[in-house]
């Protein structure tokens, strides 16, 4: 898979981030579950408290014979029923026993309010068994909830340890991935650039992938190839020039930018040198054969111009001397 350098750097951290988020979500779920169990424990305690409160209020109602006590009993029961409903669809098996107990307590209250005291006393006795049943049931469920909370706490600690190890391992893996995907290719590019800077254009630059480092290596490869072609050309043209051959030219089609300008100037230099030397050779050959008609034309700069001026001046002096000699010979 081809990835840009940015993606290569971001991807491992993104993966690490996702992993950490996933692990945190699991921890959060653990915590929610623990909170739920703790809430159930609180609810169970409150239900137990409500059961005691109902019993106390019924007794107060019997003693005070106030109908208003029924309102308080109903409010307490309503709160307890809501708490039981929170424990689950069946309120952990407490729903029906609580309703039966509440109904029985209310019945006792009403029986006393109707002055059916003997019946009321009988029913009160029967209620003790129901109370004990609910009480035992609540105690058992609270113990189970405490055990569950302790188990979840232990699991949460273990999981936190695992999370720490996994995160550390992932950090190591991310470092390796970044090292292999980013640092190592950068080091390779640095070594290539240093070799070129040191004048070594013979190295082979391996280019694979399409990230920014690959693009840099590809640019270095092109630059190395262009420099090599230019230097080989210059070496060839200079070598031939030293052997008096100024006919060689650099191929400017393979060059670009500064290299192309340099190649054009070198071609221009060898061209001017060749043309100048050719003109000097032509005029001196003619002079040697006594032909004074030849001269160097054109517009040569610098030392070539001075040579042109010297040769042409020398040729004019020879021509004038020859004319004087011819005139003197005619006069004699």
């Amino acid at each position: 898979m081809h990835m840009t350098l940015t993606k290569k750097m971001i991807a491992p951290y993104a993966l690490l981030g996702i992993l950490v988020l996933a692990l945190l979500s699991v921890l959060f779920a653990f915590d929610l579950k623990r909170q739920g169990v703790a809430a159930d424990e609180r609810a169970l305690l409150e239900i137990g408290s409500a059961v005691r409160e109902i019993a106390a209020r019924v007794q107060t109602g019997i003693l005070t014979r106030e109908e208003a006590m029924a309102i308080e009993i109903a409010q307490v029961a309503r709160r307890a029923d809501g708490l039981i409903a929170r424990l689950g669809p069946d309120g952990e098996g407490l729903h029906t026993p609580f309703q039966d107990y509440f109904a029985a307590m209310v019945a006792v209250n009403s029986v006393y309010l109707e002055n059916r005291t003997e019946e009321g006393a009988q029913r009160l006795g029967q209620l003790r068994e129901q109370e004990r049943g609910i009480d035992a049931s609540i105690v058992t469920r609270i113990a189970a909830a405490e055990a569950e909370r302790a188990r979840l706490t232990t699991l949460a600690w273990l999981f936190q340890g695992v999370v720490l190890i996994v995160v550390l391992a992932m950090l190591g893996l991310v470092s390796v991935l970044v090292l292999r995907g980013v640092i190592q290719p950068i080091g390779r590019a640095v070594r290539v650039a240093e070799a070129i800077a040191a004048g070594d254009l013979s190295g082979t630059i391996a280019v694979t992938g399409n990230d920014e480092i690959t693009q840099l290596l590809r640019a270095l490869q092109i630059m190395q190839e262009a420099l090599r072609i230019l230097l080989v050309g210059i070496k060839n043209i200079v070598g031939k020039a030293t052997r008096g051959d100024f006919d060689e030219r650099l191929d400017i089609a393979q060059q670009q930018g500064v290299a192309r300008e340099l190649a054009e100037l070198i071609n221009q230099m060898t061209g001017i040198t060749r043309a100048g030397l050719h003109d000097v050779m032509r005029v001196t050959d003619a002079l040697a054969k006594g032909d004074l008609s030849q001269r160097i034309d054109g517009d040569y700069p610098g030392i070539f111009g001075q040579t042109q001026l010297g040769v042409n001046t020398h040729k004019r002096q020879h021509s004038r001397q020859a004319l004087e000699n011819q005139w003197r010979g005619a006069m004699c």
Binding site: E67, A70, I71, I73, A74, Q75, V76, A77, R78, D81, G82, A85, Q99, F102, A103, V106, A107, N109, S110, L113
Partner: peptide, 12 residues
């Protein structure tokens, strides 16, 4: 009646 009312008032 009170018994019925208390029971209905206490159980949603």
């Amino acid at each position: 009646n009170l018994e019925s009312l208390t029971l209905v008032g206490g159980l949603p």
